[in-house]
Amino acid sequence: MANPPKTTATEPAHPLTAEVLHYTAFTTSPTGGNGAGIVLDASSLDDAEMVTIAAGLGYSESAFVTPGPDPDGGRSFTLRFFSPKAEVGFCGHATVATAVALGERLGEGDFDFHTAAGHVPVTVREEHGVFKATLTSVEPHVHDVAPADVTEALAALGWQAGELDAALPPKIAFAGVRHLVLAAATRERLADLDYDFDRLLRLMQRLDLTTVQLVWRETPTVFHVRDPFPVGGVVEDAATGAAAAAFGAYARDLALVPADARLTLHQGHDMGRPSLLEVDLVTGDPRVRVTGAAIGMRPAVAPRS
């Protein structure tokens, strides 16, 4: 049998690899945003290997990519997300990071992402040398939360009921995964976060929460947010796209903003990893759009198994 032809130096390598890429989302600086591992071709990995890789990386979530239902189009992908402990139904920052990584390799435009939470269209564009991605959430919904559960959440956080903003009542918001929204009355209360990890974890597991979205409203459309994430084995997320989408649904449900609105969310500042998330609401579309930049942090490394 003849030897297969060798690839010449002028032939580009296939852009989608099984290497682990390191990106940070919702920032234009490697020292900001929320880091994510990305495997653009995870076809050869099983569930155990994916969770092992995610645990070894230590990011709040990592994304594992395989061809989507329409692979012939070349821009349809299935995404799975793993925290250091387990699979997560949806992760916004890893979605944005993955979209940017694909956009850098395949070009700007639209991608179809298929996740455990549902279909998530994403558009990637380049602005002044920086790639940004806009994800469109699954259809969100907002629920009341039992007063006893709010009391338990406050106890785990070490907050007092009088330190909440009465204009932004506690709710559970969903845009792919569930988040408990609690609004602090002051920036100082939000900044002072020292919670009981195990106690909050137990409550979140019982309520099927992915994060607790702690917010403080600076202006009608500018918010500062923090997201404890003990169910993923992480004390706090530096940027949480899924929670941002859920918060957009919350703001719409409570009529905090007009039907067409852009919300600006600042996250990660108290952790030393500043992040910027833009949330858009559009009249006639119940879904929420979340936009952010992402950049590679360092050279790729081989996945661990």
Rank of each mutant, 00 (worst) to 15 (best):
D198N: 12
K171M: 04
Y195D: 09
E152L: 14
L207F: 06
F197T: 04
D192M: 13
A153K: 06
D149T: 09
E218A: 14
A173I: 00
T186D: 13
T211Y: 06
L154M: 07
G158W: 12
L209G: 01
A146T: 12
A153D: 12
L209W: 04
G162E: 13
A153Q: 09
A185L: 14
F197Q: 10
L164M: 10
A175E: 00
M204K: 10
R199N: 05
D165S: 08
D194K: 11
A148Y: 02
G158N: 08
A184N: 06
G158H: 12
D144V: 11
R189F: 05
D149H: 12
W159L: 13
L190E: 06
G176F: 07
E163F: 06
D208W: 04
A167L: 09
T211C: 04
D196W: 12
A146I: 13
D196F: 07
Q213F: 15
D144S: 12
P170V: 10
V222H: 13
A173W: 00
P170E: 03
D194S: 12
R189N: 03
A148L: 09
A146W: 06
V150H: 01
T210A: 00
P147D: 15
T211R: 02
L154A: 03
L180S: 03
A155W: 04
A155N: 04
W216Y: 15
R187F: 06
V145K: 01
A153I: 12
R178A: 00
A185F: 08
D198H: 10
